[in-house]
Design a protein around this nucleic acid. Structure first.
Lengths: 93, 93
DNA sequence: TCTTTAGTTCACAATTACCGAACAATAGAA
DNA sequence: TTCTATTGTTCGGTAATTGTGAACTAAAGA
């Protein structure tokens, strides 16, 4: 819950769900159109990773992250969908 | 989301949902069995109130608060239920 | 090896949350 | 009315958390 309560992190998760092949930090910041230092982006990804919301794997020089859909849906059915739906309602898009 | 991401606040909401007639600060802290200064409790209630999750009304010397069930369900269908369900799963009870 | 790109770690600054003390509001007793 | 007890809010300082730049690590290609 704490991981998803931050506005930047929930928007990262929203972008990750739209990108089938995952995203890295650089792609994320450019899609979010927010100027964010890479150290900050790295911290957000770390929190999402440690809370079990995403997983990341190295692909050469970059780190691609995806949402842990199956695990989340089986553990907390409907939770992520409900949160993202509410978030979209508040933030347009 | 920020209002519900705090462990104390989500447990307050869980208690409020169980209490049909609402609760005040003193009752809440005794039910949660956590030693919390009343100023802290007041702050948590203020955040829940300002985020639209609860409403409060004076009854003599005390302030009784309840969850805004209808408003939340119509605006964000299933959200609060999903969050509380996930919270119970993590915190037993 | 040198360079470039992507990301992490660290230390400090900025922000936020917690808590005690003083205050406000209500109700009942003297 | 005045005094007292109870509930909750506000305020100021401190503790905890978060954000950020600088230095560092890792991988790939020239």
């Amino acid at each position: 819950m704490h991981a998803l309560s931050d506005p930047v992190r929930i928007s990262i998760v929203a972008e990750l769900r739209k990108a089938e092949e995952g995203l890295n930090c650089v792609e994320t910041t450019s899609r979010l159109k927010c100027t964010m230092p890479k150290s900050t982006c790295s911290q957000h990804y770390r929190i999402l990773r440690e809370s079990g919301i995403i997983y990341s794997e190295r692909r050469g020089v970059e780190l691609t992250s995806k949402v842990r859909r199956k695990e989340l849906d089986s553990r907390f059915p409907g939770l992520l969908d409900a949160i993202l739906k509410a978030w979209r309602r508040e933030h347009g898009e």
